[in-house]
Each structure stands twice: as structure tokens, then as C-alpha cells.
């Protein structure tokens, strides 16, 4: 049984953290990492660990197109479409970690099982990955009229891409709250906190139900979902009991990262790379099944 060969596009922190997560995967085999910065410390690390590297971004990957079937794009929303067009044109699958969202949104515990053979899938945002499972957990018990999430992350863990395009975070997250979470209307807020020592990512999910009631079932569903997210992000937990008042529910989450490449407080980055790896694993299994059928 051979692993699916994958490439990472983007030699920033997300790309590097992904490298460590892919190394632990039973389904994926990393072959090449491409960036743009010849002085990138992260490209140096990749080379040291035995991977092919390139500083020619997507064109660099295309030079080695036999070396991979799937690409993680950890660059930025602005250039993602350009990358994706070039890669999908030659049949490569793309897992998009930018908020570009040209492919369908995937939040593993909510809709991973609905994946087919999409050439491009999108990971929403860190705030989306941390909160949409909770919205879905509530919605599957009692329909959600409105859901609003507040993600607070350490300033240190917000890279230049996030900072330059902060509206993309709020808009993409809000839309995915509706499309994936099931809420009729969604809203997202992001707050950067520069405290030292750095704060662990916190997410608050405020929900308004269409109808009151089913409190115990909702609570059970939330607790089940926390456990499910913990299977790929062990540091995902509730900070305090959910607050339930009439139709309104607030859930308070903390996301501590695995500490692969990022410090543990950057749960926002960790949950993205962990979710992306989950998605890629699933796509790889589907790919293999298709290939076996063909044989």
C-alpha cells in the first residue's frame, strides 16, 4: 500500500508546521516544499529533512510534477487562484489553507464524509475550524437561527497575510458558519491580543436558536463534538460550561496546539494544519480506493 505523495506550497510557518504533521500521517508522503524566499529558514529545514525544495513557488512545483498528486497551498488568498488553476489543470488535487475559498469548505468533523474527488477544497479559516464544529453540534439537535463567533488569538500567531486581509477572515468565516455550520445567518469577529506571555487561542460561539429547549441533548451533542475534535487537536477543550439562557447559548472554547513547529498557544495555526492533514488523509484514501477499483 503506497502513500499519496504530496507537496507543500508556501514556506511560511503554516507550511512548516504542516511538514511535521504530514510526517506522522499513515496516508501521506511529503516530497517537495516550494516557497519564494531564497533565505527562508523554513526551506532550509525542509531540505535538511530530505525533501526537494524550490524557491520558484508554483512553477518550481510544476518542474517536479511527477513527484506529487496533491498540494497544500499555504500561501495567501490573493495568489491562491493562480496556483490552483495551474495545478488542477494537470490533475493535481489542492488543499487550500488560505481564505480564498474557491473550492467547497471542509470542516472535518462536520462534512469530511461528504468529500468526493474535488480538485480543490478549502479549509475556511482557523476561527472557522475552531467554531463551526460547535455550531453544527447545536444545529444537529435544534435549528440555529443565528451564530456568531469571536476568535481571540495571540498577536504573535497572526502572520502578515492574516493582518493584511483581516476582512477575508471575517467574511469567509461568516459564510462558512452558514454553509457548513447550518446557521441561517453567521457573523465572525477576530481579536488580536499582544499579551505576554502569549494567550492561547480562545473562541466563543454565541448562538440563537429558533426555538427554546432540548438543553440536555444540546449539551450532550456539544460534549460529543469536543471529543471528536480532540481526536485530531488534543488541546481543544471547553473553558467553562456553556451558558444557556432561553434561546441563547454561548460556548467557550480554548485551543492549545500540539507544539509541532508553533508554540502551543498558537492553537489557531495548529487546528488549521491538523484539519488540513485530516482532509488530505481522507482524499488520499479515496484516491487509493479509486485506483484499486481501476485495477
Amino acid at each position: 500500500m503506497s502513500k499519496c505523495k504530496v507537496a507543500i506550497l508556501g514556506s511560511g510557518n503554516i507550511g512548516t508546521d504542516l511538514m511535521y504533521k504530514i510526517e506522522r500521517s499513515n496516508e501521506l508522503e511529503l516530497t517537495i516544499v516550494a516557497g519564494i524566499d531564497p533565505n527562508s529558514e523554513n526551506l532550509r529545514i525542509a531540505k535538511e529533512r530530505g525533501y526537494l525544495t524550490s524557491t520558484k513557488s508554483v512553477d518550481g512545483l510544476l518542474e517536479y510534477s511527477d513527484e506529487f498528486d496533491m498540494v497544500f497551498d499555504a500561501t495567501s488568498a490573493k495568489v491562491h487562484k493562480y496556483h490552483s488553476d495551474k495545478l488542477t489543470a494537470i490533475g493535481k488535487q489542492v488543499v487550500d489553507l488560505t481564505p480564498a475559498a474557491i473550492g467547497p469548505y471542509v470542516v472535518p468533523p462536520v462534512n469530511l464524509d461528504q468529500l468526493k474527488d474535488e480538485l480543490n477544497v478549502n479549509l475556511v479559516t482557523c476561527g472557522g475550524q475552531a467554531t463551526i464544529p460547535m455550531i453544527h453540534a447545536i444545529h444537529r439537535v435544534s435549528p440555529v437561527a443565528y451564530a456568531e463567533i469571536v476568535a481571540t488569538i495571540s498577536s504573535n500567531s497572526a502572520g502578515p497575510g492574516t493582518r493584511a486581509n483581516i476582512d477575508e477572515f471575517t467574511q469567509t468565516t461568516a459564510k462558512a458558519i452558514e454553509v457548513v455550520g447550518g446557521a441561517k445567518k453567521g457573523k465572525a469577529i477576530i481579536i488580536l491580543n499582544p499579551a505576554e506571555p502569549p494567550v492561547i487561542m480562545r473562541d466563543t460561539i454565541h448562538v440563537t436558536l429558533e426555538e427554546e429547549g432540548k438543553e440536555e441533548e444540546i449539551l450532550q451533542s456539544i460534549n460529543d463534538m469536543v471529543k471528536e475534535v480532540q481526536t485530531y487537536v488534543p488541546g481543544y477543550r471547553m473553558n467553562t460550561e456553556p451558558q444557556m439562557t432561553g434561546k441563547n447559548i454561548s460556548v467557550f472554547i480554548e485551543v492549545e496546539g500540539a507544539g509541532d513547529f508553533f508554540p502551543p498557544y498558537s492553537g489557531n495555526l495548529d487546528i488549521m494544519t491538523a484539519a488540513a492533514t485530516q482532509v488530505a488523509n481522507e482524499l488520499a484514501i479515496k484516491r487509493r480506493n479509486v485506483q484499486e477499483e481501476v485495477k
Binding site: 469571536v150 481571540t152 469577529i189 481579536i191 488580536l192 491580543n193 499582544p194 499579551a195 505576554e196 494567550v199 480562545r202 466563543t204 454565541h206 473553558n239 467553562t240 460550561e241 451558558q243 454561548s250 467557550f252
Partner: peptide, 16 residues
């Protein structure tokens, strides 16, 4: 805790 503007959700949690 060096809370910043906008972190109203922290209030409930701290109180709890």
C-alpha cells in the same frame, strides 16, 4: 490578564 478591547466574552468566563 491583559484583556484588550472587544474581549467581552472573557468577562463571563472570568466571572464563572
Amino acid at each position: 490578564m491583559q484583556a484588550v478591547g472587544g474581549q467581552e466574552d472573557l468577562i463571563y468566563e472570568v466571572a464563572a
